[in-house]
């Protein structure tokens, strides 16, 4: 993995703000949001990486910014990689990875549904879990979970 990491750091330079290697086959990268798509593409296609399995993609809200988390696995080398980045809460835009990993399609839709993060280039970015007419993004820390905000639609109480 060492040679691969060296190549990666050389290739992207300052776009990778930090990296940690936990174990011989586990790596965590923190990258700039602008090179998010490029790095994912590189990790998938580079012969020394071959990260062909998207295990997870999620978002969390720290209160100041959104963190985006992508976990990849290589079926060839049995390597794990965690790629992290952060985007601003006011302008939550990040490039979509659906063209590289079709499997993250629903993950990105879910994160749009829950946090309102816009994945640019996603072919079908709409709500997936909540009803289409839901107001707000419930997993944001400042969401007010009052039932009056999103009442039960359709049938009214019988009594």
């Amino acid at each position: 993995m060492n040679q691969a990491v060296e190549n990666l750091l050389q290739r992207f330079g300052e776009a990778i703000t930090e990296w940690t290697q936990f174990s011989p086959n586990e790596l965590r990268l923190t990258v700039a949001a602008s090179s998010w798509q490029e790095i994912a593409q590189y990790l998938r296609d580079e012969p020394l990486w071959r990260m062909d399995y998207p295990a997870d993609l999620t978002v969390w809200d720290t209160g100041n910014e959104f963190g985006v988390y992508l976990r990849l696995w290589s079926s060839v080398y049995n390597h794990n990689a965690i790629v992290l980045t952060s985007i601003s809460r006011e302008q939550p835009h990040i490039a979509s990875l659906t063209a590289i990993y079709p499997g993250v399609d629903w993950h990105e839709r879910e994160m749009y549904d829950m946090y309102g993060v816009i994945f640019e280039g996603h072919p079908n970015l709409k709500r997936i879990l909540l009803p289409d007419d839901w107001e707000g993004f419930p997993f944001r820390k400042d969401y007010v979970a009052e039932p009056s905000g999103n009442p039960l639609h359709g049938p009214q109480p019988v009594n």
Partner: peptide, 13 residues
């Protein structure tokens, strides 16, 4: 206290 679960099906049937 879930945001999406209806508190009892007797609300509408």
């Amino acid at each position: 206290d879930s945001i999406t679960i209806v508190k009892g099906v007797d609300q509408f049937v």
